[in-house]
């Protein structure tokens, strides 16, 4: 059912690296696609891209080529399924880490064009709070913050939320706690952050879900396959299908 409705754009970001952001993005995209949606994954880690590594793709054209030589953005999309595309970034191109304003506005129109062919565009950003991370977060409809229960991840997520709310006027954050020992630990981590954000930033953070630390996930990342495909019954996969359902509710909220 081709719709002309604007796509839901989501930015998946974490402040701290190593919390499983990319793996979460890709598996979530599969879960959404499984439910029939047209989904685009954008590798927003423009300096050190790794969506393609995780998926074992051989990349011919990247976002960089689209920006540099005006390559057709739609032709740069690699289709994993008929309704699941990936727009790869280029690894190790340092100038893309700091996007200049000129590049930013072009990237914005390129992403808008491509996204219009999908129901959801999931943008996986780099770690940290660099200019490109802030840019992707300001560009999208919804900000998904991925964190682990580890204190360093908690602090960095909070710092990122603070910057985005204060300097970029973002107010709606959805939290996903990854690598949790239990749902309880995930919820507790959320509550901590939620309280502090309420007190100091006057923000209401939304809880999107907890993804448990699951052996099948680690195995999948090393084996370069997707746990949601290989082990759809695992706890992590079930958590991701739940996340996908909640994200579909976000779409209904937006439209």
């Amino acid at each position: 059912m081709p719709t002309k409705k604007a796509p839901v754009t989501l930015c998946i970001t974490s402040g701290k690296g190593g919390v499983g952001k990319t793996s979460l993005t890709v598996n979530l995209a599969f879960a959404l696609a499984e439910k029939g949606a047209r989904v685009l994954i954008v590798d927003g880690d423009l300096g050190l891209a790794n969506v393609d590594v995780l998926l074992g793709l051989s990349v011919k054209r990247t976002i960089r080529d689209v920006l540099d030589s005006g390559a057709d953005p739609l032709e740069s999309v690699i289709y994993l399924e008929p309704n699941l595309g990936v727009l790869p970034a280029s690894s190790g191109v340092p100038e893309m880490v700091t996007l200049g304003p000129e590049d930013q506005s072009r990237l914005g129109s390129v992403l808008t064009t491509i996204s219009s062919h999908f129901d959801y565009a999931l943008m996986d950003t780099a770690a940290g709070i660099g200019p490109s991370v802030l840019w992707f977060n300001s560009f999208v409809n919804h900000n998904i913050i991925v964190l682990s229960p580890d204190p360093a991840s908690l602090t960095d997520s909070y710092a990122l939320i603070k910057i985005l709310s204060r300097d970029h006027n973002r107010k709606n954050f959805h939290l996903v706690i990854n690598l949790a020992n239990s749902d309880g630990e995930g919820l507790q981590t959320y509550e901590t952050l939620e309280k502090v954000a309420k007190k100091f930033l006057n923000l209401d953070l939304q809880y999107l879900g907890t993804v448990p630390d699951d052996k099948s996930v680690h195995k999948a990342v090393r084996g370069r396959y997707l746990f949601i495909q290989k082990a759809p019954q695992s706890k992590a996969s079930q958590a991701l299908f739940d996340l996908a359902d909640r994200i579909k509710m976000l779409k209904e909220m937006t439209s």
Partner: peptide, 20 residues
């Protein structure tokens, strides 16, 4: 002057860890 420049305040840090 953004957060990236000044980081988190001591109060915020304490609040983040106190409950834990």
């Amino acid at each position: 002057i953004t957060v990236a420049m000044e980081g988190l305040t001591l109060d915020e840090r304490e609040a983040l860890f106190a409950t834990r």
